[in-house]
């Protein structure tokens, strides 16, 4: 009965509208299913975008936010191009993923999530991506042993890239960065505060 009371109410839909990036579009979905049919990875998703939107309307907060579906999006933009209601589906998917992460509901050990976190940490440190460190962090993402194995496997590629000056060993010591690092950090802090003001209110 308590389930029934929260179902198909506007609660979660309203939460998504106010707290998720581009979330105000969700109510405009007309359930045609073109996005689901257009997604090249559609089969691999736990729920297609069409279903995600319906689940939001049905008030299934836990199921939506703990799903790995949004994390599967490769940003190919097929759905955005084809949506007859012009919903920015790709952005909504990333918005939902981000919101799930913030609330700590995102699926642990999801490789996309892990990579996104590594990339973000790396990028925000200096304002420039340190390719050597991103690469190595990625190899060692699932532990030391696997990291060594992957490194050995990729040895040849790595050496060739160094030979062709695609990346430099020198990056291991500091690496390049933006001119005003503290300015960048201030900016990111401000952005985070603004987002928090919206999401945590």
């Amino acid at each position: 009965m308590s389930d029934m009371i929260n179902q198909y109410r506007n609660n979660f839909l309203k939460e998504v509208e106010s707290k998720v990036e581009e979330g105000e579009w969700v109510k405009n979905c007309m359930q045609c299913g073109v996005c689901a049919g257009s997604c090249p990875l559609g089969d691999a998703w736990e729920h297609t975008p069409q279903k995600i939107f319906m689940m939001i309307r049905a008030g299934k907060k836990q199921e939506v936010l703990s799903s790995d579906a949004m994390w599967m999006c490769t940003s190919c933009y097929n759905c955005i191009v084809r949506c007859p209601r012009e919903l920015p589906i790709t952005h909504i998917m990333h918005g939902l993923a981000h919101y799930a992460k913030r609330l700590g509901l995102a699926p642990k050990n999801n490789p996309t999530l892990k990579f996104a976190q590594i990339f973000w940490n790396n990028l925000t440190k200096t304002g420039r991506v340190n390719e050597l460190k991103v690469g190595l962090s990625l190899y060692f993402m699932n532990g030391f042993v696997e990291g060594i194995k992957t490194s050995l496997k990729m040895q040849k590629v790595g050496l060739n890239m160094i030979k062709n000056k695609r990346f430099s060993i020198a990056e291991a010591w500091g690496g390049h960065s933006v001119k005003d690092k503290s300015g960048l950090h201030k900016m990111l802090k401000k952005a985070y505060d603004l987002e928090s003001a919206r999401v945590d209110k």
Partner: peptide, 14 residues
């Protein structure tokens, strides 16, 4: 009219 209804927050469920 359908779109206007959606914008007003009417939930449509197949």
């Amino acid at each position: 009219f359908y779109r206007a209804g959606q914008k007003k927050g009417i939930v449509f469920s197949k």
